[in-house]
Design a protein around this nucleic acid. Structure first.
Length: 308
DNA sequence: CACTTGACCTGTCCGC
DNA sequence: TGCGGACAGGTCAAGT
């Protein structure tokens, strides 16, 4: 579920919280969540200081001063939540003992309680825990275990298969409608929804923003790319950039379990036009929104605005 | 090579 | 109430 706006929101949150933090310890329960950790954790992770937090496509990158980078993919149910520990006052043995044994971490989540998912961490979905020298922690939670964390030398990150083939950032000022249309031609015999979900065509779009941008451009998701006019593709380009920007401004979409670095939900879905709105009226023409299946995904359309 | 489908997982929801 | 099955969706491997 985390698509570009959600990962961007997490990046911005962690970018304010993590730089300068020194990693004191890393624990993980599920080897698949951190495939190459065992040998490299001690050498290049513990003792390293966080330099910068970045994003490329739906991937989060945390640069360390050890010339290594944590590469994190949240896939569908991944979360990265930062928890500040209760400020310790170590004046007396009593207070130290009380703090140590009773309240390892304070309530997590920021903002208004109704905006956050409440609970204690770690929980049963916690796969990796990064502990920092100041006592704060970063939890990588992932209910379905599709996500992963990898530790790679920073200069090798661009060489992994995913980054070698991934398409341009849709919100980059260098990304033009002309380039968008040109890149779509590699998938000209498939449907437009599959084409924009293809990360090698354009980075960062997932099911939510595919449906929203196709509605905005009045394109049926099953339309073959080769049958779409250049005007339609230009409109789609504009809509993709519009919905991604709007969602970032709203802190992303919380469908089931997305939360940001401080535990807060995103509010984009309350602005969504069709996603998860089957049975409701199309905001443009009033026709009932229907849910169909395209490219193997649940797909939401207005059958009147988006003709096949 | 282009394209489609299934696998990877776990939790939730729906119908019987 | 319990239970089986469908479904959720990002990416990759394997299939056509």
């Amino acid at each position: 579920m985390p698509e570009l706006p959600e990962v961007e929101t997490i990046k911005r949150g962690l970018g304010k919280l993590l730089p300068g933090k020194c990693i004191a310890n890393v624990t993980f329960d599920n080897p698949k969540s951190f495939p190459n950790a065992p040998g490299d954790v001690a050498k290049f992770l513990v003792g390293a200081k966080i330099v910068k937090v970045k994003r490329r496509a739906k991937v989060l990158l945390i640069d360390l001063d050890s010339k290594y980078t944590l590469v994190i993919h949240l896939k569908m149910t991944g979360q990265l939540v930062y928890v500040r520990t209760r400020e310790l006052s170590l004046k007396t043995e009593d207070r130290r003992r009380k703090t140590k044994y009773s309240v390892p971490t304070e309530r997590w989540g920021g903002g208004h309680p109704s905006d956050s998912l409440t609970g204690k961490l770690p929980d049963k979905s916690t796969r990796v825990v990064f502990s920092f020298a100041d006592g704060s922690k970063l939890f990588f939670n992932d209910q379905r275990k599709f996500g992963w964390v990898r530790l790679l030398p920073t200069d090798e990150v661009p060489n992994i298969d995913f980054f070698k083939k991934v398409g341009p950032e849709p919100l980059s000022s260098k990304f033009t409608s002309r380039e968008f249309a040109a890149r779509l031609q590699r998938r000209k015999n498939t449907n437009i929804k599959a084409a924009i979900l293809d990360q090698s065509v354009i980075a960062g779009i997932g099911n939510i923003y595919a449906d929203e941008s196709l509605w905005g451009a009045k394109i049926h998701p099953a339309s073959l790319v080769k049958n779409l006019s250049i005007q339609k593709l230009n409109k789609l380009y504009e809509e993709i950039r519009y919905v991604l920007r709007l969602s970032i401004a709203k802190g992303g979409s919380t469908d089931r379990n997305y939360i940001d670095a401080t535990g807060k939900k995103g509010s984009y879905l309350s602005f969504a036009k069709v996603f998860r709105r089957e049975g409701q009226d199309c905001p443009r023409c009033g026709t009932k929104i229907v849910k169909i299946r395209v490219a193997g995904r649940g797909t939401h359309i207005c059958p009147k605005c988006q003709k096949a």
